[in-house]
């Protein structure tokens, strides 16, 4: 139990320190790396709680995909260190406001949240000895099926929206059409023309 506690406090410390450093560091790329450290230690905490499926999914989705895309965008920003040193206190009131709103929302959730009356009794997470992955599957594909599907639809709409907003069809763009290239025969490309002296030829293309 002692080792467990030591490891838990280690990861908890890393999580909190790195998330504070994400917002306090000046260099945006460093901020993303610290965010990755934060995600990794959060997933370690999940694993320590026995939620190994959630821990691995956090690693795969957030660290393996989302943070890579963050890094991808942030890396291309030209970091202007003179501007960075000018101080970020200008945004302090707004940041505090956002933080306050989230805190109030969390507080409201914590106070008013109620489980379904038979949640703990019927919940496969607490009743079966099945592995964590199976119990999550049993839960989200039965009781919470509609919420799960709804979340999927929201993501789908967001994805389509992002594509529609950024997609522009350019007619001037010449794309490679591999079947067209491969199926091109000699007859389509080469034509032998008898050139009459002092008249030349008219090439129609």
């Amino acid at each position: 139990m002692l080792a467990h506690a030591i490891i838990f406090y280690f990861f908890a410390f890393v999580t909190i320190t790195s998330s504070i450093m994400v917002i306090s560091t000046k260099n945006t790329v460093h901020a993303v790396f610290l965010l990755i450290l934060d995600f990794v230690s959060v997933s370690c905490l999940f694993i320590m709680l026995g939620a190994e499926f959630l821990g691995m999914i956090t690693l795969i989705v957030y660290v393996g995909a989302v943070a890579v895309l963050f890094l991808f965008v942030v890396m291309m920003i030209n970091i202007d260190f003179a501007e960075l040193k000018s101080g970020s206190l200008d945004y302090m009131p707004f940041g505090l406001l956002v933080g306050l709103v989230i805190l109030v929302e969390l507080g409201m959730m914590a106070v008013s949240w109620k489980y379904k009356p038979d949640f703990v009794v019927k919940n496969p997470m607490t009743t079966t000895t099945a592995s964590n992955t199976e119990s999550i599957g049993l839960l989200i594909y039965t009781d919470y099926f509609f919420f799960f599907q709804l979340a999927g639809f929201i993501l789908l709409v967001a994805m389509i929206g992002a594509i529609v907003l950024t997609f522009r069809r350019k007619n001037s763009l010449r794309r490679q059409d591999i079947t067209k290239q491969v199926s091109r025969e000699r007859e389509d490309a080469v034509e032998l023309i008898k050139v009459i002296s002092s008249k030349g030829v008219k090439i129609n293309d």
Partner: peptide
């Protein structure tokens, strides 16, 4: 571990 394949993937 139970989630071995996910671990490798991660």
């Amino acid at each position: 571990i139970n989630v071995g394949i996910l671990y490798i993937f991660a």
